[in-house]
Design a protein around this nucleic acid. Structure first.
Length: 591
RNA sequence: GCCCUCGUAGCUCAGUGGAUAGAGCGACCGCCUCCUAAGCGGUAGGUCACAGGUUCGAUUCCCGUCGAGGGCGCCA
């Protein structure tokens, strides 16, 4: 049933090679699709590769190979061309049979047939600090990670999608204190709100919630709050603080956090927890609406609670990779190619973020994944050597960890760059973007740029030209097929048996060839962690379809012709639907 | 200063150790009495930044130069 032209042709060539040069072994016989259709459907450079070892003219080798090629019903012609390429022309039946395969496999067309045990792969992505709404940068990471995870599933892996929740550490404390200060303000206790605390309106909303639920329970006099807090520098309207003033600001903020913990005692945890669960729930809801689902939300704090962070550091120590300097514990990451050693435990006894990340990755390997993919913001690229170094130091299989970097999104309104400071609260949220542009266009737009390249996202353009967005071009092809089927009013299932011989025009055969490229597109995209290739493929498939649709009618009088064309149209619809599914984009029946 | 990425059509960007380097947008000329014109056909537009090297063959791999962007905390 299933026919794979590439492996068929390479088998033919291998057989020919065995009689031309029995001693020669070639691991991989390359079969490619020539750009120029006049070069046939497939081509091989085998003769060119062999020329050197056989010390012979590549054209002569190619001619001998062609002469020794076993006969095949799938191949119409094999000829030597150019410097020594062997060009193959397939029989029409070999080109059109993909339609039957698509119709038979349906949603599974493009999926790798399961062979043995499926590798367990974890994709960790987004992992945004739960300190405020997700922004458009997270939107890119979410779109990329979700599509990548789906792609890897198609490629035959057992995929787990994970979100690492940074619920321990200073950023969460800053959010908690920001909320508390807004809450105090509601009760008339005026503590100047630090410029380096979280500014967003959502902080005030959480303060309102706490007041509504608990009244004055967490109120302390402003004077008591500020009693032991180092003073803030003079406020500057332009926010342009020098280095010393910035340090002073951070010390002031830390003082406020300490005051909060001191005055509230156990109740600090309530404020902290309230802020955390509110923001986490918000992110989760946002992502679900965006079509991005996670199988596991992994808590950083749980690594501390279960003692895994201390255990990881102790293990490094035991293996002799830790030394003490200036009261802090350092991991000698320079032994593993890092440019400098890194602190894992500060002089105040607190573990660094790096320490919990070591424990986190050790935990990932304990969970038995064959492959772990981390999707990080590109600003973390300097972080890779130390994490891989730590894993190597622990004796873990580093080669199973792949880190993929997603570059920043620069947001523009027209020609004006939108500032994206999280703490200042002056950023466009993912939710706003989705409301303005729509989920489908949003997801697809992100896939039109390779993930490791910076993306300029012009909001005005995305909105004003939303009808020109390629996503509609692809969706339209899907809707057009649906519309034709509606007018035909026949049984789609019956098309699986259609005789495909009437499919003979250049456009029809080109469309079939495009459909046949889908599985290899998926495979290559999964291998390269590059879901954008799926988006580019879909655009090409849609273009081939629209061209055919415009040139030839589907619903013609000739019954055989009609059945064959309907079968082709339905196959196109299926592949578009499968591709859009990977990208998390809807395949609508009407536009 | 060190590290990473990038430089391809007017603009935004794909792509590949192979044959005449592609798409979208923009420009220009056409196509609906006919399954959705959110569509299609055609034209114009290129020293693949520059200079070397490896190779039968380099836009692709390596070195250098120039240019652009980003990253380099006992932050997370």
């Amino acid at each position: 049933m299933s026919f794979d032209p590439k492996s068929h042709l390479s088998e033919l060539l291998r057989a020919a090679l065995a009689s031309v040069a029995p001693a020669q072994t070639v691991a991989d016989i390359v079969i490619e699709r020539p750009r120029d259709p006049s070069h046939g459907d497939f081509a091989s450079n085998l003769a060119l590769q062999l020329a050197r070892e056989l010390k012979a003219n590549p054209r002569q080798i190619a001619e001998r190979l062609v002469r020794e090629l076993p006969g095949s019903g799938w191949v119409d012609k094999a000829e030597v061309a150019g410097a020594g390429f062997i060009n193959f022309r397939l029989a029409a039946a070999a080109k059109t049979q993909v339609v039957k395969e698509v119709l038979a496999r349906g949603p599974d067309y493009g999926k790798r047939a399961p062979a043995g045990k499926r590798p367990k792969v974890q994709v960790e992505f987004v992992s945004a600090n739960p300190t405020g709404p997700l922004h458009v940068g997270h939107g890119r990471g979410a779109a990329y990670g979700a599509s990548l995870a789906c792609l890897l599933t198609y490629a035959g892996n057992d995929v787990t999608r994970e979100f690492y929740v940074n619920d321990a550490g200073r950023q969460m404390d800053i959010l908690a204190v920001s909320t508390w200060l807004r809450y105090l303000d509601l009760h008339g206790e005026k503590v100047p709100f630090p410029p380096n605390a979280y500014q967003g309106a959502y902080v005030g909303e959480m303060a309102e919630q706490i007041r509504g639920a608990h009244g004055e329970r967490y109120v302390h006099p402003a004077a008591a709050v500020l009693a032991c807090v180092p003073p803030a520098p003079l406020r500057r309207a332009d926010g342009d603080y020098d280095k010393a003033e910035k340090a002073q600001l951070e010390a002031h903020l830390d003082g406020l956090i300490a005051a909060g913990k001191d005055l509230l005692g156990e109740e600090w945890h309530y404020v902290h927890q309230h802020a955390l669960s509110e923001q986490l729930a918000d992110s989760r809801e946002d992502l679900e609406e965006y079509g991005v689902h996670f199988d596991c939300w992994f808590s950083e704090r749980s690594l501390f609670d279960t003692g895994m962070v201390g255990k990881a550091v102790a293990e490094l120590e035991k293996r002799g990779h830790i030394y003490v300097q200036d009261g802090a514990k350092w991991f000698r990451s320079t032994d593993f190619g890092d440019e400098k050693d890194r602190v894992v435990q500060r002089d105040n006894g607190l573990y660094t973020y790096f320490a919990s990340d070591i424990a986190y990755h050790a935990n990932k390997f304990e969970r038995g994944f064959d492959k772990v993919v981390d999707v990080w913001g590109a600003d973390h690229h300097g972080y890779i050597p130390r994490v891989k170094g730590a894993l190597a130091a622990l004796g873990l299989p580093v080669e199973r960890l792949d880190v993929t970097l997603v570059q920043f999104v620069s947001l523009f309104r027209g020609t004006e760059r939108v500032s994206m400071s999280t703490r200042a609260g002056s950023y466009v949220t993912l939710r706003e973007l989705r409301d303005e542009v729509g989920n489908d266009a949003c997801r697809f737009f992100y896939m039109l740029r390779k993930q490791d390249q910076a993306l300029d996202f012009d909001l005005d353009l995305a909105k004003s030209q939303s009808n020109d967005n390629p996503v509609y071009y692809v969706q339209y092809a899907h809707a057009r097929v649906c519309s034709v089927l509606q007018q035909w009013d026949g049984e789609v299932k019956s098309l699986g048996d259609a005789d495909l011989a009437p499919l003979a025009s250049e456009r029809e055969l080109a469309l079939c060839a495009r459909l046949a490229e889908f599985p290899e597109t998926i495979e290559a995209a999964a291998r390269d962690y590059a879901p954008h290739a799926v988006a580019f493929y879909l655009r090409e498939l849609a273009a081939d379809f629209h061209a055919w649709y415009n040139a030839e009618r589907v619903l013609v009088d000739d019954a055989a012709q009609k059945q064959a064309r309907l079968a082709l149209a339905v196959a196109v619809r299926r592949v578009i639907a499968n591709g859009l599914h990977i990208l998390g984009v809807a395949a609508p029946e009407h536009m």
